[in-house]
Design a protein around this nucleic acid. Structure first.
Lengths: 166, 166
DNA sequence: ACGCTGGTTGCGAATTTCGTAACGCTTGGG
DNA sequence: CCCAAGCGTTACGAAATTCGCAACCAGCGT
């Protein structure tokens, strides 16, 4: 899905305040409220963006975060990713290329909680051949989003790859 | 600042849908809309929680995300973390225990951008003894929020949360 | 007892969202 | 060439939500 300048600006504004009224965004962009509503719905439906509440884990009672590197039997990465993504304590799931196939970040109350997760739930998922856990000692940086890249100025197409996906 | 059950449930609901109307949250919790408004304001003011739009970088024009595992000479982890955290393309920096010392996630425009980062900036940082890069293929989950821990023992267990509106 | 401060409710006014109909534009077939 | 279909957009009234109070009720320190 291709983004135009309106999409980009909507995302930028919602990155600053996820509850900004659509009417205000619309005013600023010089379009109708209905359009902003339509675009946000579409961006959400296409999973380009979502509006969520995020909380600082340290301030709401968690003290254990773990990054788990997972090796998966070939061809099952997608499926395993879906399964582990359903864990409520999973905060991040990404498939990667390299020594490992999947990265999973989980946030737990304590070691017992994590032990339960690892032994009783993670290791029961078929397709997982091995796991490697990294205890997260300290989060030094956690960007809540990424600046929206500049609009293709004028009509300049983006200078690289033809958009292959979807 | 500590949280009571109302705070926890508000956070839980907003984690599912950051735009959920306060009136609906209030109804579900059996309190007034004004109270929910007050609590959300307070949680935001105390930086316990915030409501933001988050976008998938791979879908808004960044074509390359890489997780870099870094080994650091003992005692320099903190310093190296600070240095790499200053890179504008760093979206996540955490120190960990295990095979590696530091995890660094970067978001780049293209491979040239990443090559520059790796060769010209990362490898020049002293204290880094080795790096291992994992190309991020697909982000399956990016919660940026963490389930709210259960209320302390004694308080009633929470019924399963209703699915946020589609 | 007193006054304070923080937490909570209620209510009406202002604002926002929602549902829907209408319009234009492009695309693909016949 | 014309029509039908689908998407993107606007407009507008109705419904729902948020906002701005004022009032009230604790608990607490003096």
């Amino acid at each position: 899905m291709d983004l135009d300048d309106i999409d980009r600006q909507i995302i930028a504004q919602l990155q600053g305040d996820g509850r900004r009224p659509f009417t205000q965004i619309a005013n600023e962009l010089g379009v109708s409220e209905g359009l902003v509503r339509y675009r946000v719905q579409r961006l959400t439906r296409e999973k380009v963006m979502q509006v969520v509440g995020i909380a600082d884990p340290l301030k709401i009672g968690f003290d254990l975060m773990v990054m788990v590197g997972i090796r998966v039997t070939p061809g099952m990465v997608r499926e395993v990713a879906d399964r582990v993504g359903k864990f409520p304590e999973a905060s991040y799931v990404a498939s990667i290329g390299g020594d490992l196939d999947l990265l999973l970040e989980v946030v737990c109350r304590d070691t017992a909680h994590f032990a339960d997760l690892l032994n009783n739930r993670l290791h029961h998922i078929e397709g997982i051949t091995s796991t490697q856990t990294f205890l997260i000692l300290e989060i030094h940086k956690m960007a809540y989003g990424w600046g929206v890249p500049d609009a293709p100025a004028g009509e300049r197409p983006r200078p690289h790859l033809p958009v292959p996906r979807e």
